[in-house]
């Protein structure tokens, strides 16, 4: 992927994510449910591996860190991605650097190693299993 395409995608998705968090935050403040964007959840009724991320992020913003872990531990990664990447990209564009692009290429190379990818996917899969067990009231 070219640097230009990556920066456009990261900036667009990062800012859209931030707007979505603000919208969800306001909805949840009023005790209303935010619009469900999860296609998998809408089709099957089951939570997907990253369902609950927004609830988790809102819990982190409220300082309720234990609740955030219960909602979805991926919320911690989500809030880091959304709060750092758009500004990192903007800083790169402003100063004419490409540190984010180099970081992306490094992460991409790392993830092409089978054991790294398998480890990441296993963690996500395990979290999903726990989420599904919780969903079916197994504990």
């Amino acid at each position: 992927m070219t640097r230009k395409n990556l920066y456009f995608l990261a900036l667009f998705l990062g800012l859209a994510g931030q707007l979505w968090i603000v919208y969800s935050y306001k909805k949840l403040e009023k005790q209303e449910e935010a619009f469900n964007t999860c296609i998998f959840n809408r089709l099957t009724g089951l939570p997907c591996p990253s369902c609950g991320t927004i609830h988790s992020i809102v819990s982190i913003i409220h300082g309720n860190f234990r609740q955030a872990l219960t909602d979805n531990p991926l919320g911690y990664i989500g809030i880091l991605i959304v709060s750092i990447i758009p500004y990192w990209v903007l800083a790169d564009l402003a100063f004419g650097k490409e540190s984010f692009y180099r970081f992306f290429l490094l992460a991409d190379r790392m993830l092409k190693r089978r054991w790294v990818l398998a480890s990441v996917l296993s963690i996500v899969f395990l979290l999903w299993i726990v989420k599904l067990l919780h969903f079916f009231h197994c504990f």
């Binding site: 859209a16 979505w20 964007t37 999860c38 296609i39 990253s50 991320t53 989500g78 991605i81």
Partner: peptide, 8 residues
Amino acid sequence: LTCGGLGI
């Protein structure tokens, strides 16, 4: 990890 970038 981001639920398909929140669907977007």
